[in-house]
Design a binder for these strands. Structure first.
Length: 294
DNA sequence: GGGATTGTTTAAAC
DNA sequence: CGTTTAAACAATCC
């Protein structure tokens, strides 16, 4: 397939040198949904074409089968579930998970290397949606219903169901450490490494503290921290906590809102103690040893 | 070239 | 059974 390159400045090189954490979590996915929704609702999918022979980008079916499932289907809505982008078709759902480095673009820039392109979605009006993903961990899924995804995912942290009492009750009976628990998509859907570190710092909780040892009062603070963080990040198009690029080189401020993530060896913004980086559940974890004690 | 990076899944161990 | 740990996986960068 011949790809027409328009020149659009791509700041991803600068970005990758300064700060490589570009992982889409809930607010970033929400931002992407808001970005692509007005562009693709009403269009009809003509084809979904894996690039560079990378057929495994289609997680649920082989390319031929996938084609028969989405071809000629119109798009009625775009929404989010956890970190999944959910494209509602006239029948069935096309889901996209960006994983670590996935990006959706309507146009490619000169700096977008063809080998980083994993999928092109062609629409009936001649436009395309490009799935660029230089690590190629992102995936596309087709499901007839959302049941399979709902079975895998837990509560939506911004839904009315996610109340402070919900969290209090669930923590009370959990023997798991807070960090792996909050990272578990089956527990709460949408939190990733960055927001979990930020939320725990905000609530002054140690990532290795066991759920059942968290007081109801502390659980309430954690609940509030999680929701406040997510809301603030969405308000700022996912760029408040991390610098997330979406669309054609769109970006925003970054770093200034990061309280603890990636701030190891720097001073805690609350107490001036030095932030340290430890490993919890095999993940890089940032804490203030003074504010967050076991 | 080994290690670090991620979210997810699966399997084994406790 | 619930939980923990680990490994595997995908690919790339330094």
């Amino acid at each position: 397939m011949n790809i027409f390159h328009k020149y659009i400045p791509d700041f991803s090189l600068i970005f990758s040198i300064n700060f490589r954490k570009n992982m889409p979590e809930l607010p970033e996915v929400e931002t992407v949904v808001g970005f692509i929704k007005p562009e693709i609702v009403g269009k009809t999918i003509m084809s979904v074409v894996p690039q560079n022979g990378y057929d495994k980008v289609l997680a649920t079916h082989d390319p031929a089968k996938f084609f028969t499932l989405v071809n000629s289907k119109s798009i009625s809505d775009v929404s989010r579930r956890g970190k999944y982008i959910v494209i509602h078709l006239q029948k069935g759902f096309l889901l996209i998970h960006l994983r670590m480095t996935g990006r959706l673009l309507f146009e490619l820039s000169q700096n977008d290397k063809p080998k980083h392109l994993t999928t092109i979605i062609n629409f009936d009006d001649g436009t395309q949606l490009y799935f660029k993903d230089y690590r190629k961990f992102g995936r596309l899924y087709y499901f007839d219903t959302l049941d399979p995804i709902n079975q895998k995912l837990g509560i939506e942290p911004l839904s009315p169901d996610f109340t402070d009492n919900w969290l209090i009750d669930r923590l009370e009976v959990s023997k798991r450490q807070l960090k792996p628990l909050l990272l578990d998509q089956k527990f709460i859907a949408g939190l990733g490494n960055i927001y979990v570190d930020e939320a725990l710092w905000s609530a002054k909780l140690h990532p290795q503290q066991l759920g059942s040892t968290v007081s109801p009062a502390k659980a309430r603070v954690l609940h509030n921290s999680i929701q406040a963080l997510l809301r603030k990040a969405i308000e700022n198009q996912g760029t408040t906590i991390i610098n997330f690029y979406f669309g054609e080189g769109k970006s925003g401020n970054f770093r200034e809102q990061l309280q603890v993530f990636n701030r190891q060896d720097k001073k805690c913004l609350r107490c001036n103690e030095k932030i340290i980086k430890i490993r919890v559940a095999q993940r890089g974890t940032h804490i203030c040893p003074k504010c967050q004690k076991l």
